[in-house]
Design a protein around this nucleic acid. Sequence first.
DNA 1: GCCGTTTTCGGCCCGACTGTTTTCAGTCG
Length: 564
Amino acid sequence: MRNSEVADLLERIALLLEASGEEERFKVVAYRRAATSIRNLEEDIEEVWKKGKLAEIKYVGEGIAKKIDQYLRDGRSEYLEELEKKVPKGAIELMQVPGIGPKTAYKLAIGYGIKSVEELKQAIESGKLDDFFGESVRRSILASIEKLQSYEKRMLLPEAEQIAEAVSSFFSSHGIRIFVAGSLRRGKSTIGDIDIISTSKDSASLLSSFPLVDSVVESGPKRASVRLKNGVQVDLRIFEEDELGSALLYFTGSKQHNIALRNIAIEKGMKLNEYGLFNQKTGERIASSREEEVYGALGMSYIEPELREDRGEIEAALNKKLPSLIKISDVRGDLQVHSNWSDGADELEAMAEEARKIGYSYIAFTDHSASASIANGLTEERFRKQWKKIEELNDAMKPFKILRGVELEIRSDGSLDYSSEFLEQFDIVGASLHQAYRQQPEKLTERILKAIKNRHVDIIFHPTNRLIGRREGHEVDLEAIIREARDNNKILEIDGQPNRLDLDDIWAKRAMEEGVKIAIDSDAHSIGELGNMRYGVITARRAWLEPRHVINTMSCEELMKVIS
DNA sequence: GCCGTTTTCGGCCCGACTGTTTTCAGTCG
């Protein structure tokens, strides 16, 4: 599938068009729309291309089809290359600064020869741009650059939740209820801003008085934004009580989802904005107070926030074919947990007790195998001792069940720790790769494929090994890994650690569509981290997973049958 | 550049806020 590659090409063209001072701004829109359309395309774009049917794709016409044709045939696009030459150097980089859009970036690059964010900063500080920007704009741009250059990037889910919680309780201590929207409500793995909605007229000034506020970015009767001391921006929108549904819909996004909804409204002779769904002709309001009503009036079923990415949920909702997403309460056990026998912080017993308290009926301890020496990996002898302890606990905690598991290191040559006879004695084996991860992606893929083929391995843990904000996932061939897992009836994991969430939503969905079963695990290294399961479930929901796709929604007996 | 059971031309999602070009362009979500 090269769909996302082609979509990237079109988006790059759109961006360059914008920065090149292109006058027809709807041309830019057209390229963006075509990009989205291809990203969401079910069929393989190369297949469509071979059949000569590119122009039949929605929002792809003769012009864009030509560009795609050349790209797929020659691996390059002359149009893109021309644009790269035409765009003033630095304009694209300048657009990263909040407050600087394509027009300003173009003028700065052409008129002042500014080629980077750093040069922009120096130009403002030296007063060179005093006649271009007013004083307050200069200040706000310098603040934006500082934020950009600091190491604060997007937040992980727990941090965003914490901030939203703090804002929320501040408001409720003043008797005002707020609703959290935005990408936090959609459960994205990283969050930029915190978006909140209120129905109180006082909430804009109240937000400005929130103790953690550093500066007020803007403040009007219907909208206010503040920047907190930790650099996070909080955006507030104020609505009437009976507008809450359309308001939540609008402010939850995603942007692409909203655009798609508004286009459907237009097709049906209606108009959708944050204040409601209206009859286009009469202006009469059809729905607004609840999200369900708005979707309903558009002829759609209710779409859960996690699905609102314009990745096919619109069509599914129109055809009443949305999935019944997995819920945290569907999870009956945790299949990746570490104790203080390897690199965890807590005792087996305490971890198991907590798991039982959560309501699970089983847990697998998957302490590290011998060659993971940094993580205090266990020798065969130490595992035998651990199993004794597990046996005692199983007797004491009936009917709760503790499984003998291992996080088995896939070594640099693809071989695994321990003998076959020894591996046989585990209830569950999850294989993962930590060592020699700087090998070529092809080699890494080969190691994982070899592990999948090993009959003792049940699950591949955190398949790409990404650490959000610290390193990208390995560029392993996930298509091949998914195929191999499918053919060998093996399980792939969504690791619930907030900085992993690996597989991510896109690939977990792909695996599910290929018929591969998924395990959602906490990867807990302490009692508190057992709660990471929640983030795994959120990611699974974003991947369209239903309980039947997830192996640890099964009872322990069923599970043992499936993996034996 | 794309699209059309109101349109092959004239639209393109929609609205809030800011600044300072006092009527709107630019940017953002």
